[in-house]
Each structure stands twice: as structure tokens, then as C-alpha cells.
Design a binder for these strands. Structure first.
Lengths: 107, 107
DNA sequence: CAATTATGTAACACATATGTTACGTTCAAG
DNA sequence: CTTGAACGTAACATATGTGTTACATAATTG
């Protein structure tokens, strides 16, 4: 879950919230913040490399869009372990054990 | 969402996963990792201060337990923004509908 | 072609995170 | 009451993140 690290920063959280409503180019995103534009450009790179957003080139603009699968992954992770804690496994245990074993390879 | 910062570290992610299965004391948790015990103690503090876990004193042990509400908050954050892109993506619609019925069982 | 616009990257400064070892505190057992 | 075990905290070193300014690149416009 490298995604959590990408969402740890409040600026990036706001960017995600913005992109959830509509696609936006980098300049339009940076205009919403008080920090410099290169700083936003870097935040966008972090989000891009973690798979939370992706960009397409439109002329001289870079339009960013949210990658829903990334947020979906977050949702599933939280939901899974919360459900596990609550003792409502409902056959998800096998899938969980499978996920755990693959994670052990990269600690 | 300060919780994302708490979950950003892979060690802390693993701790959460461990605590999802059963409550554990600090020593038992630390035994699973190669880093020093004080390092784990600090990770536990981060998780505690962000509300992800809480501890009770049992004799000379500190037993940690997961606070499901924290993970629920993460779930809600992600699912909130899912609502925006839900109608815009076709490929995921089916998968989401399938999950929706499972989710209703765990309120 | 030259100037402008939009954007990313480089280099650097500074803040925050994460690890270690040494030590303090609390509780249980003898 | 002394010893030891379990745990947290302090102090410090170093890695990682985040911000800035200066510059590079690519497309658009005059």
C-alpha cells in the first residue's frame, strides 16, 4: 500500500479531492494553493508514481485525472482489516491469507 | 485525515494487520520485526496518537488493540470520492455493485 | 523565427521521520 | 526490599520529504 504514503500529505489529499470532481490541468491545480507551482508539480509526480492520478497531454497543458482503482484499493484495505477485526470474515479469510503471504516477500 | 500519515509507513501497516487478527502486547509485536523494540514503541505511539490503536495496561504488559472507527474513517473518505467517479467509469461499475452488498453487512 | 505560455526538472536549504543506544519507570516475584 | 522483566522516553545520527529559485523543454502565438 504505497498509496497511503501518497495520501499522507494534506496538499495531496486536497488535490485528490479536487480531481474527484473534475479533471484539471497542473496550472489550474496549482492556482488553488499558496505554495509554488514546482512544489505542486512535485506533489503531482508523487501521486502519479503511486498510481493515484495519471495525466494526458492536451496541447501545452497536462490534464490530470483521478485513477479510481487506487482509491478503491484504499477502501478495500481498510474495509478488509476492519471487517476482520469485527470478526465478520464471511469467507474472506482465504483471500486475506493470500494477500498476507505475498506481502511477506517485501517487508 | 491524519490517519493516512499513520498508515504511510509499511511497518505500521503490518502492525495494523497484526492487530486486526488479535490484540497483542508491545513485546509480542516487536518480536515480529527486525528493528529494535524502542522503534516499535515509537510506531505504536504514532498509531496511538492518530487514533488507529489504543492500549490497556495488563499487569506489566501493554496490550494494544485496533480501533475500528479509524479504519472506518479511511473507508468513508475513499468511498466518498468514489461516489464522484462511480458514474463516470463503466469498467468498475460491476465490481462496485458486487461489493455494495457485502458492505451493507458491516455498518 | 522570436516571444510567450505551460509545465517539468535540478540543485539546494530546511523540516520531519525513523533508526539506534542509554536510561527511567512500573509491576511482579523471590 | 531487591531483582528482573516489560515498556516507554531521551538524545542523538541519518535518511527522507517538502519547500524555494533557477533553468530546460515543448507547444502556441505574433
Amino acid at each position: 500500500m504505497e498509496v497511503f504514503a501518497a495520501l499522507a500529505d494534506p496538499t495531496r489529499q486536497r488535490i485528490v479531492e479536487m480531481l474527484a470532481m473534475a479533471d484539471r490541468d497542473a496550472g489550474s491545480i496549482a492556482a488553488e494553493f499558496s505554495v509554488s507551482r514546482p512544489a505542486i508539480s512535485r506533489h503531482l509526480r508523487v501521486l502519479r508514481e503511486s498510481g493515484v492520478v495519471e495525466s494526458r497531454t492536451a496541447g501545452q497543458r497536462r490534464v490530470y485525472r483521478l485513477v479510481p482503482e487506487a482509491l478503491y484499493e484504499v477502501e478495500q484495505w481498510a474495509s478488509r482489516y476492519r471487517a476482520f477485526w469485527q470478526g465478520r470474515l464471511d469467507g474472506l479469510e482465504e483471500h486475506l491469507a493470500k494477500t498476507r503471504s505475498t506481502r511477506e516477500e517485501t517487508p
